[in-house]
Design a protein around this nucleic acid. Structure first.
Length: 571
RNA sequence: CGGUGAGUAGCGCAGCUUGGUAGCGCACUUGGUUUGGGUCCAAGGGGUCGCAGGUUCGAAUCCUGUCUCACCGACCA
C-alpha cells in the first residue's frame, strides 16, 4: 500500500473528549472516528487490525472444531419472549418496530437465534456435539458508553454456542474452548489471565473470564501470590480471618456521639482503627407476595466494602441490590443512617464473616447521636446469620489456601460459560437420544470482544510516540520510508524496487511515498505503530545499504540491500 | 437516572463578563524555501457560532426552552 493512495488520517492533537490512552491513540492514529455516543466508524487502518484479530480468532476456533456461520443483527421479538429475556434483559436491549408495527430487537447476543436454529436443524444425538460460531456486530444500549471502542454500544464480537447431549460432553468442549482462548491470546501477543468469574443469574456453575491486564481496566481481579488462583473480585471468596475468634472482655455501653456518622468519625471519636468497628447497611429485602417491602441489614467490618454481587445472591436480599433511602430507614428503624448497628434490630441481620469474627467492637446504637462500644455478638446480639458479602482486598488470604491475594486491573476480552439448559428448555431445543426419547440439550457459550481486543492491545502496547503493535495484529508489518524520494532518482528507484519485492514476498508494507519531510513520515509511522521500518537515504545508499529500525526496541541496524527481503521475511 | 462540565472551521482553542455581524494554532490549497525527526515565508479556501424561541435598531455574546457530547456517580451507615 502506498500512503499516497491510502487514507492515513493521522492527527497531531488529541481530541478533547478522549480519556484513556487507547482511545486517544485510536483517534490520533486514524483507526476510528466517532459517529455518535458509543458508535464508531472503522477507518482503513483500524479495520486492518480488526480483521487481523478476527482472523486469528477464526483460525483457532476452526482448529478447535467450531464451525463458522452468520446470524442476523435484527431479531424478531417473539424469540426473546419465548426465552423470557424480552422482560428480563432491560433497557440495554434496543427494541425496534418494523413498518408493520411488529417488534424486533437489535441483537445484543444470539442465544435465542441459535437455539431456535439448532432446534430445527438438529434432530439426533448422532449430530452432537456441535459448536457453532460467528464474528458479528452486536448492539447493546449501554447506560454510559465510554472509553471509545472499549465500551461502545455497537461492537464486534465472536460468539460461539455449543450443544450437547450431556454434561460430560459440555465439559469437554468447554475445556477445548478454554484452551483455544489461551491459544488466541497467546498468538495476539497480549499479557492475559483466565480468571474464575460470576456466571450471573444464568445458573451453570462454571465460568471463566479472560482478562488483558492493564491499569485502565474496568474490572478488578484477585490473584494469589503463590498459586494459579485468579478470580474476578466479584467472585473471589473472602475468608474469615485466620485463628480462633477472640473472646470479648468488655461489657456493652452506650456513648453519646453527636454528629458522628461515618466510620472515619467513629474512629476519630473512639480513637480506634476501622477494624474495630462495624458498619450496617440497610437494603431492600426480597419481596414476599402481598407483603409490604421489608428491609435487611448487612453488617460489615468498618474497613471492608460490600460486594454487591455476593449480596444479591442471598435469598433474603432484593436483586438488584437497592439501598434503603434515608427516609425509609428513619421511618422504620427510628434513627439516622450514621447511627445504625446490629444490636436490637427487628429486621433480618446478615453479618459478614470478618465482622462476625470481631469482639469488643463499636457500632451504632440505632438511636441518633449514640454509639455502642464493647459489643459482642454472643452477649449483645445473639445468634447471627453469617455470609460472605464483602469485597476481597489486597493481603487477604487466597481462597485456595495458598498465599495472599493481590489485586490487579484487567480488561475483560473473553468470557466462556456452561449455560446448561436455560435456553434449550425454554425453547424446547432437544434431540432424540439413543433410547429414541426426546431429550433437552445442554449448552455452552463462548464470547470474545474482537473490537475491544484492539483497544486492549493498545492499552498494553504504547509509548509516548504512539502505538506499538504486536506483529500479529499490526495493520502493516513494515513501513518503507524513502528520504526525499522526490528529489532523488536513485532513492526512488531503490524504494520502488524494494516495495515491489517486499509486496511480492507477501509482506504487508506501507510505502510512504508522500512528498513529506522525513520527520513527518517518522512521526506518522510511529504513531500508527508499524512494528518494523526501513529507511532509504542517500548516505547509506552509497554503501548499498538501508537502515532497519524496530518500533518496539528502537534498535537500528544497517542491511545490505540484497539481504533486505530475507531479513524482513524472517522477522 | 443523579452530579459536573462542554457545544464557535476537519482537530485544538480564544472571543461571551461590558451586544455592533467572528479570530488564533494545526490541517487543507497555491507559490517559493527547506530536506535523516512534525522547516520557514507569503498568498488563499473553508464557519447558518448545536437547535428553537425571546429581548434589542442590532445577539456567538443577554433570557427561556431544547438537543447533543464528555467525565464522575451505592461504598454514607
Amino acid at each position: 500500500m502506498r500512503t499516497s493512495q491510502y487514507l492515513l488520517s493521522t492527527q497531531k492533537e488529541t481530541p478533547a473528549d478522549a480519556e484513556i490512552v487507547s482511545h486517544q491513540l485510536m483517534l490520533r492514529a486514524g483507526l476510528v472516528r466517532k459517529l455518535a455516543s458509543g458508535l464508531y466508524t472503522w477507518l482503513p487502518t483500524g479495520l486492518r487490525v480488526l480483521n487481523k484479530v478476527s482472523e486469528i480468532v477464526r483460525d483457532e476456533m476452526n482448529k478447535a472444531g467450531a464451525i463458522e456461520m452468520l446470524m442476523p443483527v435484527v431479531q424478531p421479538a417473539d424469540l426473546w419472549q419465548e426465552s423470557g429475556r424480552w422482560e428480563e434483559y432491560g433497557p440495554e436491549l434496543l427494541r425496534i418496530k418494523d413498518r408493520h408495527n411488529r417488534d424486533f430487537v437489535l441483537g445484543p447476543t444470539h442465544e435465542e437465534v441459535i437455539t431456535a436454529l439448532v432446534k430445527n436443524e438438529i434432530s439426533s444425538y448422532k449430530q452432537l456435539p456441535i459448536n457453532l460460531y460467528q464474528v458479528q456486530t452486536k448492539f447493546r444500549d449501554e447506560v454510559r458508553p465510554r472509553f471509545g471502542i472499549m465500551r461502545s454500544r455497537e461492537f464486534t464480537m465472536k460468539d460461539a454456542y455449543s450443544f450437547h447431549i450431556d454434561n460430560d460432553s459440555l465439559e469437554k468442549t468447554y475445556q477445548d474452548m478454554f484452551q483455544a482462548y489461551c491459544n488466541i491470546f497467546e498468538r495476539l501477543g497480549l499479557e492475559y489471565r483466565p480468571v474464575i468469574a460470576d456466571s450471573g443469574s444464568i445458573g451453570g456453575a462454571v465460568s471463566h473470564e479472560f482478562h488483558v491486564l492493564a491499569e485502565s481496566g474496568e474490572d478488578a481481579i484477585a490473584f494469589s501470590d503463590s498459586s494459579d488462583y485468579a478470580a474476578n473480585t466479584e467472585m473471589a471468596e473472602a475468608l474469615a480471618p485466620a485463628g480462633e475468634k477472640p473472646t470479648g472482655t468488655q461489657t456493652m455501653s452506650e456513648v453519646a456521639t453527636p454528629n458522628v456518622g461515618t466510620i472515619e468519625q467513629v474512629c476519630a471519636h473512639f480513637d480506634v482503627t476501622a477494624e474495630q468497628t462495624v458498619k450496617t447497611l440497610i437494603v431492600l429485602a426480597q419481596q414476599q407476595d402481598d407483603q409490604p417491602q421489608g428491609l435487611v441489614a448487612l453488617v460489615l467490618r468498618g474497613d471492608h466494602q460490600l460486594n454487591t454481587i455476593k449480596a444479591e445472591k442471598l435469598a433474603e436480599v432484593h436483586a438488584p441490590l437497592t439501598l434503603a433511602s434515608d427516609d425509609a430507614v428513619k421511618q422504620m428503624l427510628g434513627c439516622d443512617i450514621g447511627s445504625l448497628g446490629p444490636v436490637g434490630l427487628t429486621i433480618p441481620v446478615i453479618v459478614d464473616r470478618s465482622a462476625a469474627h470481631l469482639a469488643d467492637f463499636i457500632c451504632g446504637a440505632n438511636k441518633t447521636g449514640y454509639h455502642l462500644q464493647g459489643v459482642n455478638w454472643q452477649n449483645d446480639v445473639g445468634e447471627i446469620q453469617q455470609a460472605d458479602i464483602r469485597e476481597v482486598q489486597a493481603g487477604d488470604p487466597s481462597p485456595d489456601g495458598q498465599g495472599k491475594l493481590e489485586i490487579k486491573r484487567g480488561i475483560e476480552v473473553g468470557h466462556i460459560f456452561q449455560l446448561g439448559d436455560k435456553y434449550s428448555s425454554a425453547m424446547g431445543c432437544g434431540v432424540l437420544n439413543e433410547q429414541g426419547k426426546h431429550q433437552i440439550l445442554t449448552m455452552g457459550c463462548y464470547g470474545i470482544g474482537v473490537s475491544r481486543i484492539v483497544a486492549a492491545a493498545i492499552e498494553q502496547n504504547h509509548d509516548k510516540y504512539g502505538i506499538i503493535w504486536p506483529d500479529a495484529i499490526a495493520p502493516f508489518k513494515l513501513a518503507l520510508i524513502p528520504m526525499n524520494m522526490h528529489k532523488s532518482h536513485r532513492i526512488q528507484e531503490v524504494a520502488e524496487t524494494l516495495y515491489e519485492k517486499l509486496t511480492a514476498a507477501g509482506i504487508d508494507v506501507l510505502f510512504d511515498d508522500r512528498k513529506e519531510r522525513p520527520g513527518v513520515m517518522f512521526n506518522d509511522m510511529e504513531l500508527v505503530g508499524i512494528p518494523h521500518t526501513l529507511v532509504i537515504g542517500e548516505r547509506n545508499l552509497d554503501e548499498n545499504k538501508v537502515e532497519y529500525k524496530s518500533r518496539r526496541s528502537g534498535e537500528k541496524q544497517l542491511l545490505d540491500i540484497d539481504n533486505v527481503i530475507r531479513f524482513i521475511t524472517q522477522l
